[in-house]
Design a binder for these strands. Structure first.
Lengths: 211, 211
DNA sequence: AAAGGCATACCGAACGGTAGGTATGTTTGC
DNA sequence: GCAAACATACCTACCGTTCGGTATGCCTTT
């Protein structure tokens, strides 16, 4: 078998991908390591060769998931957009393109795991918290730059608005998962975009929400 | 032992309360029926006398949780407020009073279970969906009545705005659970209120969000 | 009113399956 | 030949569920 000598071995990758897929669907507790192995087409020996246990692979899978988001941001060329307000608009557009994507399972792995473990299991909980906060801080930064470059119609705290956006995204995914439909994603993210942009002088209708 | 002949027996009640408390904290899978019995101070025999299994008590507990919310609405006297816009304002205020309450565990049992079971276990999933939809429909009704009585500044679809509010509440509770802090609840629900009221002509600052 | 019958409330030991983890062996790459 | 990379069988703890049993009170029959 051909094996890439550099970077992570293939089976490890497959285990991580399978974990992301399964835990995104079923959460942490309901996902069994046997399931992960079967899904990845790998034996338990390999599993415990690469990971010390279920919790650790969950942590690693969260990193994989997070990297996926960062890659998406990088590939979008967001950083290269010169005007901060355009950057914000592109970010909002990116959300609307990404989350309702019909090929992928609805949901955010970090939000799913975070909700599930809640106050118990602070190992996973803290990790999720750090990643959620990282997301919010990234958004906050874009908001702050846009605010600095374009005096907004009303003053706002970028951190607080970013927190609201985080909650909207997570709550929307939760509802969409439960309803098994994506229409609420389209609706809520559009509202979200129009709300955020309404902070910046745009005097046009902030909600063209009927039909 | 004195036993109330009418209504639900005490031990059944205790089991349900314990289930709500534990599943609100830990979700469905992580909550054991032994835990439930211990927390309720009841033996396993009683448990399986009143409930056919873990899933069924979860369903019943969801009803208990939902009834708690309906009771709160009833006790608030929301229905007796004559002016629809005042009723909407009171509803928004009610959200801001209820969810950050420091004595209770952060979270919504329905959202927690819904997120966890996701696409698997449609028995619980459908039940959660019905209750989430019920919440949204209730909110939508208040929005629609307010809109009918007071022509809004901008047109909006009550169902869609209610869906956004549902997502904000659920997402906010998720984030607050993860952060183990309630400040994000205060922040997001205030934003939510100001946003909704901004739909009705209020020309004042829709976000007094800085500090 | 006493006796018998029967349903409800409750108890807790035991069981059966499962899932996470381990021990140990075998192959593969350098 | 020696690690790393796998594979297989197995162990054990736990968890949901079952099941045989007791206690208690009400209802019916005589």
């Amino acid at each position: 078998m051909i094996r890439e000598s550099n970077s992570t071995p293939e089976k490890k990758r497959r285990l991580l991908d399978a974990t992301v897929r399964l835990m995104l669907r079923q959460g942490f507790a309901a996902t069994t390591v046997d399931q992960i192995c079967t899904e990845a087409g790998v034996t338990k020996g390999s599993f415990f060769h690469y990971f010390t246990g279920k919790e650790q692979i969950a942590q690693a899978a969260i990193e994989v998931w997070s990297d996926g988001w960062l890659d998406l941001l990088a590939r979008s060329g967001l950083e290269r957009i010169p005007d901060p307000l355009d950057r914000l608009k592109r970010l909002l557009q990116l959300l609307e393109e990404t989350y309702p994507h019909p090929e992928t399972e609805i949901g955010c792995m970090i939000g799913t795991v975070a909700q599930e473990v809640g106050p118990s299991n602070r190992t996973l909980g803290d990790l999720c918290e750090r990643h959620l906060d990282g997301w919010a801080q990234g958004v906050s930064k874009v908001l702050a730059e846009a605010k600095a470059a374009h005096p907004p119609r009303v003053d706002f705290d970028p951190d607080r608005v970013a927190d609201l956006m985080l909650a909207i995204v997570q709550g929307t995914l939760l509802v969409a998962r439960t309803r098994q439909g994506r229409s609420v994603i389209d609706n809520n993210l559009r509202h979200c975009r129009e709300y955020v942009l309404s902070l910046f002088g745009d005097p046009t209708d902030p909600v063209s929400a009927t039909r």
